[in-house]
Design a protein around this nucleic acid. Structure first.
Lengths: 241, 241
DNA sequence: AGTGCTTTCGTACTTTGTACTGTACCGTCC
DNA sequence: GGACGGTACAGTACAAAGTACGAAAGCACT
């Protein structure tokens, strides 16, 4: 896009809303969401601060925009495919994406107006479940459950002090030492006996829980519009695998 | 500089770290986390801005502190009781607390150093599960699952545009109209046929999903250290029982 | 009275978001 | 062809934010 036409002077638009938002994501990825200021953003774009305001109305709009941009990175499930596979694929993708952009989760809380990618995403998941034969009611239940789990897991993951480079041990060890076995005995026991064992990866828990949820959703008890109140332990009937 | 001040000024400590943090929670509850500034906080305490810095080192420390304060509001499960009841109680409590302090979820992402209340909380939950006979492995699985679900649900709940005062319909209706049935057919269908029906309360989904998880955890398949059936599996994971 | 500790306040510096204004270039219409 | 408006940036400026620095005011000892 260099030798377009015209003369020596180049006045092609350097910016665009798209480019502004992508740059904002890059800045946030690199230095955290706090490092994303209008000035740092504009500098990464090679323009002066106020120039970005030609493409976005406010910083809040940038924040809304990058949340939606992150959502657009999540793989959509394909309606019609084997629903467990599709749902698992999108859940895995969501987790991966949210790990790549940890700041996005914190933003989700404050941004209440969903963007187009977010809506498209919801639509695709609903379509997958409905096409697989879920009733509207069960779809609502399942969607709330799956999304809660996925986002919640991501939330916990980014809340962990380490960032994937090392195992839990490297960071947890010094913390654990401080209250050796006095104050939080069970926590310390679990940590030393399990979390801090070599090879443990918290991320692996994701698949375990997701499988449990998917299996439970295929159970007759789930389809049978369970009621939250009265059923405690009348179970054992719910197995088929 | 100025001549003098009041003579009968009593100089007993008006503040304390505790009071500062509680006031910070109150300010955040009232006007959102953005409204919590050193100046607004100090004003609500009746002192000048810099005075609060005698009790906290920085605003970040305040944020860490109020997150832990919120955690301390969550009911602890009692180890030894019927574990489903205890876990349900603490999950319900967590959801209630996080709804009362919606800003806390957004903070959890950025605050990586857990406070004493947070640790005590973890300890109590682990104790409950272990006492109920869960193996360390299953405890880890179950805890990750339950926490992910609980926080994730809360995250979704506070992300909703309405704040509990009204039904979903009031806020979703105008949004839905904009793309009547064109772009997001399944989403619109679900919304009109289900979410927007009178009497629907998203919060009710919480109990449904929680029951499904609790039931699934009592299933033999869960206890039997399930493996991601059709997934890439890690080698060397501890297996016992 | 002097010394030191605790608690609060005043001042000032820096970084932030952004309102207002300016400017260079383009195309369009009379 | 000249006035006009639109486009895409830049410059200046200000208010609000966090907070470093240190003074001041009271108390508790000597």
């Amino acid at each position: 896009m260099s030798e377009r036409s015209d003369d020596n002077r180049e006045e092609r638009p350097r910016l665009s809303r798209e480019r502004v938002l992508r740059a904002a994501v890059a800045v946030a990825d690199a230095g955290g969401i706090d490092s994303l200021t209008i000035r740092s953003l504009s500098q990464s774009l090679g323009v002066k601060p106020m120039s970005v305001y030609y493409y976005v109305a406010s910083k809040d709009e940038i924040l809304d925009g990058i949340v939606d941009l992150v959502f657009s990175e999540i793989e959509l499930p394909t309606a019609g495919g084997e629903w467990r596979t599709e749902i698992r694929r999108r859940a895995d993708s969501a987790r991966r994406v949210l790990r790549a952009h940890p700041w996005a989760i914190g933003l989700m809380e404050s941004r209440t107006s969903p963007g187009p990618a977010t809506l498209r995403h919801h639509d695709a998941v609903i379509a997958t479940l409905r096409t697989a034969g879920f009733s509207p009611e069960l779809t609502a239940h399942a969607y709330a459950l799956l999304d809660s789990y996925t986002y919640g897991f991501a939330l916990q993951e980014v809340g962990l002090p380490f960032d994937g480079s090392d195992t839990v041990a490297d960071v947890a060890e010094p913390i654990m030492e401080r209250f050796s076995t006095g104050e939080y005995p069970h926590l310390v026991e679990m940590a030393t006996d399990y979390y801090l064992q070599p090879g443990y990866d918290f991320g692996d828990e994701f698949a375990w829980g997701l499988n449990l949820i998917l299996d439970a959703l295929t159970t007759p008890a789930a389809s049978a519009t369970r009621h939250p109140s009265a059923d405690r332990d009348r179970e054992g009937s719910a197995r088929q695998e």
